[in-house]
Every structure is written in C-alpha cells, then in structure tokens.
Amino acid sequence: MDIAENAALVVVDVQKGFEEVDFWGTRNNPAADDNIAALIDAWQSAGRPVVFVRHDSVQAGSPLREGYEGNGFKEYVEQRRGKGGGAELLVTKSVNSAFLGAPDLGAWLRAAGIGQLVLAGIQTNMCVETTARMGGNLGYEVVVPLDATYTFGLEGPFGWRQSADELARASAVSLHGGGFARVVTTEEVLAGG
C-alpha cells in the first residue's frame, strides 16, 4: 500500500465523552486508542499533515456537548496536538461529516494539494464512515485503518439491534465494497508510509 508523502491523517472525534459507558454502551476494538496514537506519532514524525476533528454536539445531555468535560479530546490526543513538524488543522462540527465543519476541510485540503486521506477515530459507523463516504464522493483517495476506529452497539428499527463488531464490519464492507474507501489495518498503513 502506498501512502502519499502529503497524505493527511484525519483523527475523528477522539473525545473524552466516548468513555461514558452508561451513555454509549459496550464498545468494540479495545486496541483502537493505541493504534490511533501510533498513527498520530508516525504522521507527526514524518512531518505529514494531521487534522484533529472535534464533535461539538448540540444535543442536550450529550457527553460531547460544548462546555462539558467530555467535549475535550482524550488525553493522549491532546498531548500530541501541536507536536508535529507538518501542517495541523482543528475542525469542529456538529454533524457527522468532517467536511461540514469549520474551517472548511475540503478547502484546506485543496489549498495544500492533498489527495489522500487516512481516517481514524470514533465512531466507525457514524462520523468516520460519513466522512469517508463524503471524501470518496469528493474525489479523495480515502484509507480507513479499521482497527484504529471503534463504535458501540446500536438499536434500529423493528427492534433490530447490532453489536459494535457487527456495525464495524457492516461499515467496512459498505466503504470498501462500495468503493468509498480502502479498508485496511493500522499495520498496513504504517508499513506503506
């Protein structure tokens, strides 16, 4: 796998509020945080661009709402911000796609001549998947190291319920099989960089 010299790592919503198990339920992929940290370290060491995305929820009671402790980045992410030799951007959003936040992610990527994105973060089937789909639709080459993402079980219509693992697999199949993104492992990304 070839990772472009100027590929941007987009770290989606790695926020403290996702640690509130009573709100979210059971997560999958316990190694995701270590993999996200490894990707940030590799990008910063290589002087590649890193985008940190924060979800500022407008829903009352959300652990990700502005002004609440859970809105902040997890400690390992906060400690790494501003430490790299490459360009860095903070995008805030209140919807699922990082392309619909502020400042305008697409404009920043175009201005920098970036055509490849590596997406990691939370939740696999929500903001990571939505950002990947939009990125693919906008013509970016999107890579998603699935083991650098995680999600939670969810109930949908008709009483249907899917576990976090089932949702992550469904996202991976939709993204990869649908041509929105290439779904890989963190190890593959690091080896390709």
Rank of each mutant, 00 (worst) to 15 (best):
R133S: 11
G135P: 14
L9K: 03
D13R: 07
G84V: 01
E20W: 03
G67Y: 08
L154G: 04
L39S: 14
N28I: 02
K74P: 00
L105N: 01
V183G: 11
F23R: 11
G177S: 09
D104F: 12
R161A: 09
E155T: 02
N28R: 04
N71W: 12
E188V: 14
F180L: 08
S94E: 06
A181D: 08
G25Q: 14
S94T: 15
E155Y: 05
S45H: 06
I40N: 06
D147T: 03
M1S: 09
A38Q: 00
E20N: 10
L146E: 02
R110S: 15
L109T: 01
E141W: 01
D165I: 03
P63F: 03
G115F: 00
P145R: 00
A60K: 10
Q123D: 07
S97T: 13
Q59F: 03
N35V: 07
G156Q: 02
P30N: 06
R54H: 12
P30V: 04
R81N: 11
S174H: 09
D2P: 10
L190N: 12
D41H: 00
L154P: 07
P49V: 08
Q116I: 00
A60V: 08
A37H: 07
W160P: 05
A37V: 05
P49R: 06
A38Y: 02
Y140G: 07
Y150C: 03
N28A: 10
A32Y: 09
I36Y: 13
A111P: 06
A98D: 01
W108K: 01
Q116P: 06
T92A: 13
L64C: 11
N35R: 09
G84R: 02
V184W: 06
G25H: 15
V128R: 02
D33I: 13
S45F: 08
V51Y: 07
R80N: 04
K16H: 13
G72N: 10
L119N: 10
P103V: 00
R110L: 07
Y150F: 03
P157S: 15
L89C: 14
D147Y: 02
V11A: 11
A31F: 04
G178Y: 03
A4R: 10
I114C: 08
G153R: 11
E141S: 09
Q79F: 08
A38R: 08
E20V: 14
A168C: 10
F73H: 04
V189M: 15
P157V: 11
S163L: 00
N71R: 10
V12C: 05
W160K: 09
D2Q: 10
Y68S: 09
N96H: 13
V142C: 08
G67T: 10
V128T: 01
Y76G: 15
I40Y: 15
T186W: 12
T130W: 01
G85D: 09
